[in-house]
Design a protein around this nucleic acid. Structure first.
Length: 569
RNA sequence: CGGGGCGUAGCGCAGCCUGGCAGCGCACGUGCUUUGGGAGCACGAGGUCGCGGGUUCGAAUCCCGCCGCCCCGACCA
C-alpha cells in the first residue's frame, strides 16, 4: 500500500470530543471516524486491525469446535417478549417497525435467535452438544455512549452459543470456551485478568469476565495487593473483622435522639463513632419484610441481597412501607422484631460486642444492643458493600480497586432462554427437554480500543505486531531523489514478496511529517530510506514499541526489517 | 434520565459580555524557496456562525423553543 493513495488523513490536532487516549489516537490516526454519537465508521486502517483481531478469535473458536454462522441483526420482537428481555432491556434496545407496523429490534445479542434455530436443527439429544458463533454488529442504545469504541451504540462482537443436553454438558462446553478465551487474549497480547462476574440482566448463574487492565476502564474490580484474590466489586466478599472479645455487655439503654434520622446525626448526638452504630435497613421481598444489619459506617450491597433472593424481586422500603408495616423510619433496630421479619446480618456485626442502634420508636435510639441477648439473626450473610482497604478473604492482605475494560464475558445460561421459548430436544427417554445453553461474547471493536490504551505513548499508538494494520512502513525521506525512490521501491517489493504487510510513504511531504505519522499510526517497524543513508550505503530502522534504532546495509534492508519484526513484541 | 458545558471553514479555536464588513492557527489549491523529526514566503479557495422563531434600522452576538455533541452521575453482555 502506498500512503499517497491510502484512504486516511491523520489529524494534527486532538479532536475536542475525544477524552481518552484510545479514542483520541484512533481518530487522529484515521482508524475510525464518527458518524453519530457512539456510532463509527471503521476506516481502512481500522478495518485491517479489527480483521486481525477477528482472525485470532475465529481460529480459536474453530479450534474449540464452534461453527461460524451469521444471524440477522433485524429481529422480530416476539421472542424477546417471550423471554422477558423486551422489557428488561427497555430503552437500551433499538426498536423499529416495518411498513405493516410489525415490531422489530436491532439485536443487542442473539440468544433468542439461537434457541429457535436449535429447535429446528437439533431435534435429538444425539445432535448435542453443539456450538455456533458469529462476528456481527450489535446494537445497544446506551444511555451514555462514551470514549469512542469503548462504549458505542453499535459495536462489533463475536458471540457464541453452546447447546447441551444437561448441566454437566453445559459446564464442559463452558470450560472449553473459557480455555479458548484464554488463548485468544494471550495471543492478542492484552494485559488482562479473569474475574467471576455479576449475572446481570442476561440472566443465569456462573459467569466470568475477561478484563483488560486500563486506567480509563469503566468496570471496577477488586484485587488483593498480594495478587491472590480477584472479584467484581459487587461480588467481592471481604474477610470479616475478627470476632469481638468476650466481654460483659452493658445493659440495653434508651437514649433520646430527636430528629437523628441518619447515622451521621445519630453518632453526633450520641457522641459515638459511626463504626459503633448498627444500621438496620429494611427491604421488601415481594410482600415480606427483610432487615439487613451492617455497621453504621458501611453500606448494604443491594446486588448481593437481590441475588440471594433471585428470582424474587427485592426493593428498599419506601415511606409507605414504613407506615403500613409499623416501623419508625430512621429509628429501626433489630430488637424485638417478630418472625414476620427475616433478619440478615453481615459477619461484621460479630466484630463488636454491642451496638448503638434504633429503638423502634421515633426519636429514640439504644446503646448496648447485643446479639443473642437483645436481638436474633436469622441468617449470617456477607452483605456489606466492598470498600477500599477491606481485607482479602484469602490472606488478609489489603484489597484495592483497579479499573478495566471488559473485553470478554462468558455465561452459563442454563434453560433461562430455552425454557420460555420452548426450545427443546427429545432426550433418550423420549421426553422433550429445553436446551441447556451457554453464551460467550468478545468485543472486537472494544479490544482495538483496549489495545491502544495499553500500547501508546505521547507520539501515538505502539501496536503489537499482531494487531498493527501494516507491519512495516518504508519512509522515503527525500522523495525527489531518484536514488531514494529506486531503493525504497526495491525494498518495498522485496518485503511484499516475503509476504510482509508493508506501506510505502511516497507522499510529497517533508520527512518530519512522515516520521510523525508513522509513529502516530504505530507501524511496528519503520525503514527510513534517505539521501544521507544512501551515500553511506545504509538505511535506518526503528522499532516503534521499544524505540530501538539501528542501521543496515541498503541491500539487507528488507531482511533486517523482517528480523526486527520477528523479535518485536 | 438528573447536573454541567459546548455547537463559528476539514480539525483546533477567538469573536458573543457591551448588536454594526465573520476572524486566527493548522489542513487544502497555485507558484517560488526549502528538504532526515509536524518548513518559509506570496497569492488563493473554502462559512445557511447547529435549526426555527422573536426583538431591532441592523443579530454569530440579545430573548424563546428545538436539535446535536462532550463531561459528571445514575445505568450497563
Amino acid at each position: 500500500m502506498r500512503v499517497s493513495t491510502l484512504f486516511a488523513r491523520t489529524l494534527r490536532n486532538d479532536p475536542a470530543e475525544a477524552e481518552v487516549a484510545a479514542h483520541r489516537l484512533l481518530l487522529r490516526a484515521a482508524f475510525i471516524r464518527k458518524t453519530a454519537a457512539g456510532i463509527y465508521t471503521t476506516m481502512p486502517l481500522g478495518l485491517r486491525t479489527t480483521a486481525k483481531i477477528e482472525r485470532v478469535v475465529r481460529e480459536e473458536m474453530d479450534a474449540a469446535g464452534s461453527q461460524e454462522l451469521r444471524m440477522p441483526i433485524v429481529l422480530p420482537a416476539e421472542p424477546w417478549r417471550a423471554t422477558g428481555r423486551y422489557d428488561a432491556y427497555g430503552d437500551l434496545m433499538f426498536r423499529l417497525q416495518d411498513r405493516h407496523g410489525r415490531e422489530f429490534v436491532l439485536g443487542p445479542t442473539q440468544e433468542e435467535v439461537v434457541a429457535e434455530l436449535a429447535q429446528h436443527e437439533l431435534p435429538s439429544y444425539r445432535d448435542l452438544p453443539s456450538n455456533v458463533y458469529q462476528v456481527e454488529w450489535k446494537y445497544r442504545d446506551e444511555f451514555r455512549p462514551r470514549y469512542g469504541l469503548l462504549r458505542g451504540r453499535e459495536f462489533l462482537m463475536k458471540d457464541a452459543y453452546s447447546l447441551d443436553r444437561d448441566e454437566v454438558g453445559m459446564r464442559e462446553s463452558y470450560q472449553a470456551m473459557y480455555d479458548a478465551y484464554v488463548k485468544v487474549f494471550d495471543r492478542l497480547g492484552l494485559d488482562y485478568v479473569i474475574v467471576e462476574g455479576d449475572p446481570g440482566q442476561i440472566g443465569g448463574g456462573v459467569n466470568h469476565e475477561f478484563m483488560a487492565l486500563a486506567d480509563v476502564g469503566e468496570d471496577l474490580f477488586v484485587r488483593c495487593e498480594n495478587g491472590d484474590y480477584l472479584a467484581d466489586t459487587e461480588a467481592a466478599t471481604p474477610r470479616p473483622p475478627d470476632a469481638a472479645p468476650d466481654e460483659e455487655p452493658p445493659p440495653l439503654t434508651e437514649v433520646d435522639t430527636p430528629g437523628a434520622v441518619t447515622i451521621e446525626l445519630m453518632s453526633e448526638q450520641m457522641g459515638l463513632p459511626a463504626e459503633a452504630t448498627m444500621k438496620c435497613i429494611l427491604f421488601d421481598v415481594e410482600g415480606r419484610s427483610v432487615a439487613v444489619l451492617v455497621p453504621g459506617d458501611r453500606e448494604v450491597n443491594e446486588e448481593k441481597l437481590a441475588r440471594l433472593h433471585f428470582p424474587a424481586r427485592v426493593r428498599p422500603f419506601e415511606d409507605d412501607d414504613f407506615t403500613e408495616r409499623g416501623f419508625a423510619k430512621g429509628f429501626v433496630g433489630p430488637q424485638g422484631l417478630g418472625s414476620n421479619v427475616t433478619i440478615f446480618a453481615d459477619p461484621a456485626i460479630r466484630g463488636r460486642a454491642h451496638w448503638a442502634t434504633g429503638a423502634n420508636r421515633p426519636d429514640v435510639h439504644v446503646t448496648g444492643a447485643t446479639f443473642d441477648r437483645d436481638f436474633r439473626v436469622d441468617r449470617w450473610q456477607d452483605l456489606v458493600q466492598f470498600r477500599e482497604g477491606d481485607r482479602c478473604p484469602v490472606d488478609g492482605g489489603r484489597l484495592e480497586i483497579a479499573r478495566s475494560i471488559v473485553v470478554g464475558h462468558i455465561y452459563q445460561l442454563g434453560t433461562y432462554y430455552s425454557a420460555p421459548l420452548q426450545a427443546t430436544f427429545q432426550d433418550e427417554d423420549g421426553s422433550q427437554k429445553p436446551f441447556v445453553m451457554g453464551s460467550y461474547g468478545i468485543g472486537i471493536t472494544r479490544i482495538m480500543s483496549a489495545a491502544v490504551e495499553q500500547n501508546h505513548d505521547d507520539a501515538g499508538i505502539r501496536w503489537p505486531k499482531l494487531l498493527a494494520p501494516f507491519e512495516v512502513a518504508i519512509i522515503m525521506a527525500n522523495a525527489d531523489a531518484s536514488a531514494v525512490t529506486d531503493h525504497a521501491e526495491r525494498i518495498y517489493r522485496e518485503l511484499t514478496d516475503r509476504g510482509i504487510e508493508v506501506v510505502l510513504d511516497d507522499r510529497e511531504e517533508r520527512a518530519g511529517v512522515k516520521f510523525a505519522d508513522a509513529d502516530l499510526v504505530g507501524y511496528p517497524v519503520q525503514v527510513v530510506v534517505g539521501a544521507r543513508g544512501i551515500e553511506a550505503g545504509t538505511v535506518d530502522l526503528k522499532v516503534r514499541s521499544t524505540g530501538h534504532r539501528s542501521q543496515a546495509p541498503l541491500a539487507e534492508a528488507a531482511e533486517t526489517a523482517v528480523d526486527l519484526l520477528t523479535t518485536a513484541p
